[in-house]
């Protein structure tokens, strides 16, 4: 694949940059330039939060050429909190742990490598929201109600 193809979409791929419709305020991802809600131009870049939940998912056991390295892998439809649905791989999670409605967050990972010599394609994937351990306030910390 020519490197220009991935390069062109780097804002979307690397950091989930979508668009906002100036007309009706709809947040769009992927960017599509014409708002599907009100058919007016929507070309203002808008960074999506990357938070969402699993709408549906599947495990790919028979990967297409170029994705053998990661198979079996999970692909999903993610409902972003801003509204759009996005197709992406899930990462850092086993198939038995995933469920519809699982809260996920965007991370930037390797989408595929073109052999040993090609350009490496980075892009968004989603993983279960990182669990944060509950930390007790340190003794000197101000006590809050």
């Amino acid at each position: 694949m020519h490197p220009a193809r991935a390069w062109r979409g780097r804002s979307q791929r690397y950091r989930l940059e979508g668009e906002i419709c100036e007309g009706c305020g709809a947040r769009l991802f992927p960017p599509r330039d014409i708002c599907p809600e009100c058919q007016r131009p929507a070309r203002t870049p808008y960074p999506l939060s990357g938070r969402g939940e699993v709408y549906s998912y599947t495990v790919v056991y028979e990967p297409p050429a170029g994705y053998e390295e990661q198979a079996p892998y999970i692909v999903a439809l993610i409902r972003l909190e801003e509204g759009p649905l996005v197709s992406a791989m899930l990462t850092d999670v086993g198939p038995e742990e995933v469920y519809i409605g699982m809260p996920v967050e965007m991370v930037t990972r390797v989408l595929h490598r073109q052999g040993e010599h090609g350009v490496i394609a980075y892009g968004y994937k989603f993983r279960p929201v990182l669990r944060r351990t509950v930390m007790l306030p340190s003794p000197s910390a101000p006590v809050t109600a």
Partner: peptide, 13 residues
């Protein structure tokens, strides 16, 4: 690192 991780992805996070 997982199969989709490298120095770039770890650095980004």
């Amino acid at each position: 690192p997982g199969p989709d991780e490298d120095v770039v992805t770890m650095s980004i996070e």
